[in-house]
Structure formats: structure tokens, C-alpha cells
Amino acid sequence: MTKNDLIIETILMAGKIMIENGADMARVDDTLTRIARNAGIDNPKIFETTTGILMSIPEQAAAQVEPIQKRTIDLEKVSLVNQNSRAFQDGQISLNEFRNNLVKLNISTPFFSFWLQLIAAVIVSVTLMIMYGGSWHDIIATAFAGGVGYSCYYLINNRLKIRFVSEFLASFLIGVIAVLFVRLQLGAQIGMITIGGVMPLVPGVPITNAVRDVFAGHFLSGMARAMEALLSACAIGMGIAFVFRFL
């Protein structure tokens, strides 16, 4: 492998990891250009969207394309790529080590365990319910709704890998639980319990990134992200609407 091939491979891999795990485009653009400059290419041509990266080196005829099919959210990987890029800039690691680190971190970055995430989801539900002015009687119902909803979302996303269906089913379950708890006199307000329970499912990463991408001039990616956020929000809304229509 020549040096230029190695540079292109490393840059495409770094870009792929960052975009797959929820970085915003301005950050990806900045990092990739910086890696290229530090590797000795003065004027790299890189074009990236949420669904793929294109890169060429000006003096060479060849260009490389890297399609991006899956999109998950793991901000630790984004941060690790960034750290490695900084280390490369400071000359602490060579390009080869950089590439090996990328391969390693893509497979073996630790994620918080499912139970910790479940607890986090319950905490998000309960605290936001209180912050929005819910009553303390609804805590148990909200915790239960948030926990069950997030487990459903997590299982469908990880086992079956179907997007939007997971949000729909999870919010449907949350609505059913809220209605049941209120009917059984264990909760007071259906609205507050539902809002709290749905909060862990909110597409926070696509929303924030859509805004940042559009303002940074990456209109294609911004619109794609906004669409993603809108579809997630609609799926959540449909689940809740289902409950109201038929229960």
C-alpha cells in the first residue's frame, strides 16, 4: 500500500466512524481536513454527507468513496476519533498507528451497560416530569413507563434493527401504561406520565445536529438529519395518538 492509499483509507475510516455515531458535519469536515494536512496533503478534496464520504488527492486521478449505511449514536467514539486526531497532529502517533487505533476503537469502545442505561432512562423520565410541573404522586407510574418504554426501544433497535418501529411501539406502550396507572388510581395525570416516559426517546442528537449542520452550510446533511428527527418525532406521536384513539 502506498502512502497516499494509507492516508485516504485512514481519513475515510475516521469520517465513517464519526458520521455513523452522530457527529455534526462541521466537526467531521474540520477533523478530516486536519488529518489530511497533517499527513502532508496541502489541498485535500473531501465531500461528506450523512450517507457517504468522497475523497480525492488533487495530483492523483483516483478518488475513493465510502458509503455510510447504518447510523447509531455513540458520542464516545466521536470523542475518541477526535483525541486520536489531536495525538496525530502533535506527532505522538504515526499514521499507521492512527489507522490501527481507529480499527480498534470501532470494535471495542465500551458502551454503558443496558442496566445503567435503563436506570438513566428512568431518571430522565422522572426528573423531567417533576421539572415540567408534574405531581409527586406520579413518580412511580412515570418511572415504570419510562423504564418499559426505553427497554422496548432498546431491544427492538438492537435485536431487530428496525428504526421508527421501535419508537412507535415504545411510545404506544408508554401511553398504555400511563392510561392503566391512572385508571387503577396509581397516578394522577396521564399527560405528565406520558411526557415524562417519552423523554428518553427524544431524538436529541438529530435535532441538534440538524440545526448545526444547516447553519454551518451543510444543507444536504442538515435536511437529512431534520428528516430523521421529524420521522422519529412522528413515530412517537403516532404511538401516543393510537392510545388516545382506542383506549
Binding site: I73, L75, E76, S79, A120, V124, Y150, P200, G204
Partner: peptide, 9 residues
Amino acid sequence: GFGIIVNIP
């Protein structure tokens, strides 16, 4: 809590 869900360092 939300930070843990999106796995920030």
C-alpha cells in the same frame, strides 16, 4: 441521564 443514554465519555 440523557448523557448516559447517548454514551458520552
